[in-house]
Write a protein that binds this DNA or RNA. Sequence first.
DNA 1: GTCTATAGCCTGATAGAC
DNA 2: GTCTATCAGGCTATAGAC
Lengths: 201, 201
Amino acid sequence: MEVKITTKPRDTREHILEVAISLFAEQGYSKVSMRNLAKSVGISGASIYHHFPDKQSLYIDAVSHAFSDTAKAMETAFNHTGTPIERLEEFVTCFTELMGNDLDFRKLLHRELLDGDDVRLKLLAERLFIEPFKEVTVLADGLFPNSEPHMMAISIFGLVLFHYETERLRQFLPSTRPEHDQPSTISTHVMQLLTENKAFK
Amino acid sequence: MEVKITTKPRDTREHILEVAISLFAEQGYSKVSMRNLAKSVGISGASIYHHFPDKQSLYIDAVSHAFSDTAKAMETAFNHTGTPIERLEEFVTCFTELMGNDLDFRKLLHRELLDGDDVRLKLLAERLFIEPFKEVTVLADGLFPNSEPHMMAISIFGLVLFHYETERLRQFLPSTRPEHDQPSTISTHVMQLLTENKAFK
DNA sequence: GTCTATAGCCTGATAGAC
DNA sequence: GTCTATCAGGCTATAGAC
């Protein structure tokens, strides 16, 4: 019985995707050329076209790949035991940590919010946000009876993400301090803002 | 005494800038070509180079132009009479309205947050955000004594902007309703979230 | 201040050898 | 599955006539 040993049999595709994710995140779709991507991967430009039919398909595959990794991680952010307020706190803490550790994902997300067409936005919603969004909406419905759950859930995601989004801008605003970028500081701030709200009335 | 009448003596530059703002906002720097911009303005590609030395300078001028318009409008968002809570409400309402009516500005802002270099971010901060940010920080310092004013101010801006940022994504999330995009709905929600907080303790 | 023409480069994508 | 060579077209920017 013969066992074929190939140095990199079908990992090339995966490798291309991983490099593509970081390049697309950092520079955006238009500024990444197939040649530069190929060079970063260590193959020729033509070789990419053996694995992907064109640039757009490659981009969509790369984004899907990045999102499915994060989607898996986000499932762990929910604990179904404990009081609603404890569950919200666990989600906010995990989500903030998750976002803090993945700059590429955050940039891809914001690029998609800006430039994604309806097909890609739908994919983004279904693969990534619908389930956590539903859970947060249910928690918000119980904890903030006077606010609309949908808007409250959006606000909770926004509170976390906006602090990261403005990370580079804030160095030029007054009284910025390094710990403002740390996940633990952000999640503590968000929970404080939320729980010293009607949640405890 | 002779008075020269020229149909469009020095408005061409202004015209280019206005068209450029909307194109850069909609498509981003890389996807806007000097040719297409020229065609939208109604002149030849070469003519743009009579008014601007290169594409980068044109982009910076366009962004500065868009930001200075909005900066002027943002000054009106502050009323220095009334209780702190009334003044916060007036700012949130005006700011939300202002953002809601200027899609180009919102897109340019988010593109700059993603891709702006330190020079451009500094310009953005100084020309646009430092003054309102200081005012909101002072209000936050008085109204939310247990939260850090800097983070609280960021959160207030973020609460408004994130609802707009996710406008197109939210059509694919549960229980979305058309009024969720209206400035009045957003500002009411944000104020409710904030004022039924410790501000009233 | 606007034009046409064009230089020189980079782009996405393909052909065909190995 | 990877390569080199190449095509056709778009890009920024310039030259020079009017």
